[in-house]
Simulated assay, not measured.
Amino acid sequence: MSLPLFLLSSFQAPNKKAEKKAGGGKKGKGKSPVVDALPPEGMTKEQLDEHIGRIREELDREREERNHFQLERDKIHTFWEITRRQLDEKKAELRNKDREMEEAEERHQVEIKVYKQKVKHLLYEHQNNLTELKAEGTVSMKLAQKDHRSQEMELRKDMRTQKVELKEQELANEEPAP
């Protein structure tokens, strides 16, 4: 089985990170790119066996790297999915909180409106009561004044009568007895 030369020369060395994981961190431990100076047709059986061994090692290393990167990709994808789900949940919570705040604000405005109407009604009732009390006060004051005048006139009349009687008694007392 011979591989074309362009395939053999296209293999690249793994990156430093993969090299450290795969080779225990030592450089140059058979991890160089697989490039042989001779074409496969000009190699001996031992050289071909070595060449195949190196290619298999490279293939295994590439598979390990591929598996590692797939795991990393899967982790990142899972993390992204979880984060996206959390973001969606937080957005939903935020929408719910916004809706609750709007509803609370509407309820608050309705309560304020109701209280304003109650205050208006109370002020109206207070004004009516005040007007009624003033009217009643004025009427009772006029009645009291009328009563007072009539009592005063009555008392003046009584006083005159008493003065007249007193004068008569004084005059009667001044007359000589016969």
Rank of each mutant, 00 (worst) to 15 (best):
P39T: 04
Q86L: 14
K27W: 03
K29Q: 11
L130T: 11
K157T: 08
K45Y: 07
P176S: 12
E154W: 14
R54Q: 11
K120G: 10
F69G: 00
K16L: 09
K31Y: 08
L3F: 09
E165L: 12
K134W: 01
K163V: 10
L8R: 15
P176F: 13
H108N: 10
Q109P: 00
D36S: 03
E46N: 06
Q86D: 14
I55T: 06
P33W: 02
K120F: 07
K45M: 09
P40R: 09
L7P: 01
S32E: 10
T161A: 15
E175R: 13
E102W: 02
Q109V: 05
A177N: 11
I55L: 15
K27L: 05
P178C: 02
V114A: 09
L123I: 08
E41S: 12
L155W: 09
R99P: 03
S9E: 13
G28I: 07
H51C: 09
P33F: 07
I82M: 05
K116V: 07
E174T: 14
T161H: 14
D88H: 11
F79I: 06
L87Y: 11
R107Y: 08
A144H: 04
E105N: 07
E46P: 00
S10W: 02
R56Y: 09
K157Q: 15
R61I: 00
E93G: 02
K146C: 07
E103V: 04
D36N: 02
E89A: 13
A104M: 13
V110D: 07
K120A: 14
E46R: 06
P178W: 15
R61W: 05
S150N: 04
K31R: 08
K142G: 03
P33I: 07
E174P: 03
K118Y: 01
R107Q: 08
L8H: 00
Q169T: 13
L48Q: 05
L38M: 08
R56Q: 14
K97M: 12
E111K: 06
D158C: 10
M153Y: 03
L7S: 05
E19D: 03
Q86M: 08
L94Y: 00
S150M: 10
H121S: 12
F11T: 04
L71Q: 10
E152T: 11
E58I: 02
E174V: 08
E103R: 09
K91T: 11
H68C: 05
E136G: 02
P39W: 00
T161R: 15
K90S: 14
K17C: 01
M153W: 03
K16V: 13
P4T: 06
D88W: 14
R149C: 10
Q162C: 06
L71P: 00
G28S: 13
P4S: 09
R54P: 02
W80R: 14
P14I: 11
V164K: 13
K29G: 00
A135K: 12
T83G: 02
M159Q: 14
S140F: 00
Q169E: 15
V114S: 03
N96M: 04
A37N: 13
K17L: 06
L171P: 01
E64P: 00
G28H: 07
F69K: 12
P4F: 03
F6G: 05
F69T: 05
H108P: 00
L71F: 01
